[in-house]
Amino acid sequence: MKTYGTEPGIPDPVQVGISELVVTEGDDTLKSYGLGSCLAIALYDPDTEIGGLAHIMLPNGDEIENSDAKPGKYADTAIRALLRRMVERGASYTSVEAKITGGSDMFEFESFGDGVGKRNTEAAKRELEKLGVPIVAEDVGGTEGRTVEFTPGTGTLTIKKANTDAGVTEL
């Protein structure tokens, strides 16, 4: 049973951890596990099939020093970094579309104010609006966690919740 490196064929999904972002194209699948109040931002260009997924944890990187070091951590910096990397790879800025999911608020703690998930969602929407990227689908908020998979080739964002009744949603 010798296996050398990753075999071609059906590739395993590439995991996008918290504060990470990955740009790819075609049939590659990007996956983020167990988003609670974190937000998954999927951008893709349907013409070139280039797209990416960001798994952000905080709203505003522009207010933070050194946010360039980890652009995937913040909604605003992650969106710009995704767009830049996609365009560098050949995507056309004007045809890029966005899908977002996550940003739940599972706890009503006093210290959380209006909700940590809500803050992330609002920040992402603000930045996308500013950059003129249309949000073509969203499934945000609520009180449940989500595991998401994104394939740039089809633009499909699959969302799975822990509660089995909710099943799998496709955006």
Partner: peptide, 24 residues
Amino acid sequence: HSTPEFIHDIGSAAIDPVIIQLGE
């Protein structure tokens, strides 16, 4: 300490709100 909040969900989703708040 606050009153307890019950959660039945994906494990990591139960922790990320906390680290987001601290992450500020």
